[in-house]
Amino acid sequence: MRNATDLGKEIFLESSVVQLRGDLALALRAAAYHGFGEGVCNHFSIALPHRPNLFLLNPRGLMWEEIQADDIVIVDGDGNKIAGHHEIEPTAMFIHAAIHRITKKSCVLHSHMPYASALTLTVNCGLDTTLSQNAMRFHNRIVMDRKYNGFALDHSEGERIANAMAGADIVFLGNHGVVVCNNRIDYAYDDLYFLERACSAEVLARSTRLDLATVSEDICEKVAMQVDSERLQSELFFKALGRKLS
């Protein structure tokens, strides 16, 4: 009878998992390239298809820019490492395991990227999706979690964050950072990138102290639907990043 270690090694080498490991590593390197990283902190994960209790995660102690497919680890919903050469960081396991389990989202990207994190420090704790075109793509997809409890070092805090999402794709964590979810890595990374672009535009616009021009709810909803119907752009962007960062 196979033990968990042998099974983990087999899963690690399955062709679909090898592809996902490569895609997750690319997303991490892309995030570093775009300035979204913070030391060796923050984490990206993707659930394994047909194995909902297992997910891929970047390891502890590596900078995003250096991560390759072989550095990715497999973790189960209880935080046990199933396969991989590196250790895992506790807060990553608690946040990501809970979000995967409770929200059923396949891809979970957690970042302290600068402009989005800056907006988590404000009273409103988030992005105004009635301002820039980039922001409108997220209309009705964001929730704000204003309750900051320190580091997520237990299951209860990870579960609290997951429940606070209430089914939304994106959560602004008050005084902390953001989590962006989707069911595909390329879509999730595209959202992460344009979320930071939208946040940077809002921060810059507000810094002028000029009156800001908002757009109607109807237009915001229209733009969000237009972006969702043109996801080929997300796929092409991720492939372009693969060519640049290979």
Rank of each mutant, 00 (worst) to 15 (best):
R2E: 14
D6K: 13
G8V: 02
K9F: 04
Q19L: 06
D23S: 10
A27L: 06
A27N: 04
A31T: 02
Y33F: 14
F36L: 09
E38Y: 11
N42R: 01
S45W: 09
R51N: 10
R51C: 02
P52K: 14
F55E: 04
P59I: 12
R60W: 13
G61C: 03
W64C: 00
W64G: 01
E65Y: 07
E65L: 01
D71A: 08
I74W: 04
D76R: 08
G77R: 04
G79N: 04
G84M: 09
H86A: 03
E87S: 13
E87I: 03
P90S: 11
P90K: 13
T91P: 07
A92I: 02
M93S: 15
A97M: 02
A97D: 01
A98R: 05
H100C: 03
I102Q: 08
T103H: 00
K105T: 05
H112K: 07
P114R: 12
L119I: 11
C125W: 09
C125N: 15
C125F: 10
G126R: 06
D128S: 10
T130R: 15
H139W: 15
M144S: 13
G150D: 04
F151V: 11
A152S: 13
L153S: 02
S156Q: 12
G158Y: 08
I161D: 09
A162Y: 03
G167A: 13
A168L: 02
A168H: 10
I170A: 04
I170W: 02
I170Y: 01
G174Y: 10
G177F: 02
V178L: 02
V178M: 00
V180D: 00
C181N: 05
Y187V: 10
Y187R: 11
A188N: 03
Y189H: 09
Y189F: 15
D190H: 15
D191H: 09
L192R: 11
F194N: 11
R197P: 03
A201Q: 14
L204Q: 09
S207C: 02
T208F: 07
R209G: 00
D211W: 01
T214M: 05
D218E: 14
I219W: 12
A224T: 03
M225G: 06
E230D: 14
E235W: 03
F238T: 09
F238H: 09
